[in-house]
């Protein structure tokens, strides 16, 4: 008998602070698996966001920094321009990337910076207690939309990935999910492609990963993963949004 599945080398063997059933842990693992497979742990520099995943540097076993809320793409730009042969990726939540950091992500993509962005979309601000995020679904109840998100006052869920795909500097965007085994494998494949693009100097790649927040969706982990299929993917369909290479 041979061990066919175990913790990736570049992932620290520690307990993570995430809530039970939170998708962040899965996405963290997939990134580390890809980094191990490409053997780039010693060349990788990650930028953790402000949000639940701010503590990612306690779980990754490679150089990591933490940027101001929403500014990870700018920090990544600074690092990549100085160290073009290192592998730089930002790990950002929906509030970080699509609310306060909208200008940074759009212009970093528009400059076609040769970096990889992992965008975890769980439709709420988790760290601060479940407030509405730019990607909160219509009708979804959150701390700041107690009766459900309503377009007139709260606007519509933002399709940032589709918006970014219009930019010539962007070579690859895919939206995946981590709510079942098949989707987890598809997410890994997408992350792998996004990192390969960077390794081959192709330009800006982004993977949007629909992920669960059982705590602030007020569901069990199992129900939350189902909700991604029944509700979230209606507004955020899975699949390749752009692939120029």
């Amino acid at each position: 008998m041979e061990k066919t599945f175990s913790r990736p080398k570049s992932m620290r063997n520690v307990v993570m602070h995430y809530c039970a059933g939170c998708g962040h842990g899965i996405v963290h693992r997939l990134i580390c698996e890809v980094i191990d497979e490409f053997k780039i742990r010693e060349k990788t520099i990650a930028i953790a966001p402000v949000g639940c995943a701010v503590l990612a540097y306690d779980y990754w076993d490679f150089d990591t920094t933490e940027s101001a809320h929403g500014r990870a793409p700018a920090v990544a730009t600074g690092i990549k321009r100085i160290l073009p042969d290192r592998i730089i990726f930002t790990y950002q939540g929906d509030g970080d990337l699509a609310a306060i950091g909208t200008a940074e992500i759009i212009h970093t993509a528009n400059r076609g910076e040769n970096i990889t962005v992992i965008f975890v979309n769980n439709a709420v601000y988790g760290m601060t207690g479940g407030q509405m995020a730019p990607t909160t679904i219509l009708g979804q109840k959150t701390e700041t939309t107690p009766w459900g998100r309503e377009p007139k006052s709260d606007g519509y869920p933002l399709k940032i990935s589709e918006m970014l795909s219009l930019l010539p500097g962007v070579v690859y965007i895919e939206r995946t999910a981590v709510n079942n085994a098949k989707n987890v494998l598809l997410t890994k494949r997408a992350i792998k492609k996004a990192f390969l693009n960077q390794i081959e100097n192709k330009g800006f790649s982004l993977v949007e990963v629909l992920s669960s927040c059982p705590t602030y969706w007020h569901m069990s982990p199992v129900e939350a993963m189902k909700w991604i299929d029944t509700e979230m993917t209606k507004y955020y369909p899975l699949g390749v949004i752009k692939n120029n290479c």
């Binding site: 041979e2 066919t4 599945f5 175990s6 992932m11 995430y18 998708g23 085994a181 494998l185």
Partner: peptide
């Protein structure tokens, strides 16, 4: 098949085959 390991958010499962 490792579905369990793929879905474990806390990397608790090792698979042997």
């Amino acid at each position: 098949c490792a579905f369990c390991a793929l879905m474990c958010p806390d990397v608790c499962i090792e698979v042997y085959r």
